[in-house]
Amino acid sequence: MLSHLIKRPQWSFRALLIALCLLPGWVFAADMGNCLLCHKYPGLSRIDKNGKMKLMFVNEEIFNKSVHSKVKCEGCHTDITKIPHEPAKSVDCLTVCHIIEPTSEQKFSHKSVKKFIDESVHSKVDEDGKLKKFSEDMPTCKDCHDNPLFRPLAFVKKVRPGIAEDAMGRCRVCHEKEDFIFRFYNHITTRLHKSRSPLNIAEACGKCHDDKELVKRHGLTVMAGSSYEETFHGKAANLLSETIPDCLDCHVVKGKSVHQMYGNDDPRSSTHPNNRGAICNSVDCHPNASVQFANYQVHPVFNRDQSPVVYWFTTFFYILTGGTLLPLMLILFLDLLRRLFPNATFRRRK
C-alpha cells in the first residue's frame, strides 16, 4: 500500500488532503506564515539586552482557544516579513490588522480605544495635550490585557462558564461550518461576561494600584487592591466568587467601556460622590439601598494618619483580644506546668 502511494504521488497527495480534512479545522487557522516551524519548540527562548530571558514558545493549542486565534502572526508582528527574522519589535495593539470587521467591512483595528483612553484618567496626556507628570506609569494596552482565552458562557437553563452544547445544537440547524459555529459562539458569549474573574481583575489593577511608590507619586489616597481585599467584596473575590463586584463594576460607567474611566473628582465618573449612590443601589447589587449606604468605605484604610478613628477602633480590638487571651494562655501554660509539680512552693508549706 505504502509503495503504491510512493509510486503514484498524486494518490499520496490526495491521502494527505483527506487526512488534513479530518483534523480539526482550527489547527491551521493562524499559522499561514509557518511561524510554528520554529515557535512550536517549548525551549525556544533568548536572553534580551536587559539580561531577561524571553520565552518565544507558542503553545498552539492554547493560542487557538484565545480571542486572537484567527489573527495571523504577522497581523500583529508587522515588522516580520521573512524567516528567519530579526528580533521582533513589541506589538502595537492599534495596528490595522488583516481581519475584516464584518459590520463595516473595513480592516479591523483597536484604534478607537486610543480616543477613549486619552480622555480617561489613565491618559498619558492632560487636557491640553501635554505629557502628564510620570506619564510613563500610565498603563498601555498590554499592562492590562494579555491574549485572553475564550471564556464562553453556557446558556440554555444554566448560566455557567463553558460551552452549552444545547445552544451549539441550535446553531448547527442553520450553520454548517463547525469552526465558524465554535468561534462565533465563543466570540459572543465570551463578551457577555468578563473574560476575567473578579480576583483576576483586582490583581490586574493592583499591579499598579497596590504599588506603594506609584500610589504615592500620583497622590492617590488608597492602595486600591489591598483595601478592596478588606471588604466583603474583595474577600469573596479571593474565594473565587464570579458575581461579586470587582474594580470595574464600580469604576466603569454603566454602558461604557473600561477605557472610559475617570477620576473620582470628574463629574462624568461613576465614583464621583454625586453618582456613587447609583452604583450601589443598581438592581443587580443592593436595590433600594439609600444614598448614604454608598458612604460605606469600599477602600477602608486602617492607617493612623488617614483614618484615625478606624485605626483606634481596630487597635481597641487588638488590645481586647491580646488582653484577654494572653493572660489566659499564661494561666493555661502555668497550670500545665504546675500539674508536674503539684506540691512545690517557695514559701512555708501549708
Binding site: 433600594n288 439601598a289 439609600s290 448614604q292 449606604f293 458612604n295 460605606y296
Partner: peptide, 12 residues
C-alpha cells in the same frame, strides 16, 4: 440587612 439599616445609620 445593611440596605435596611442604612436608611437610618450612615454607611461608614
Amino acid at each position: 440587612n445593611k440596605e435596611l439599616f442604612t436608611q437610618i445609620i450612615p454607611g461608614e
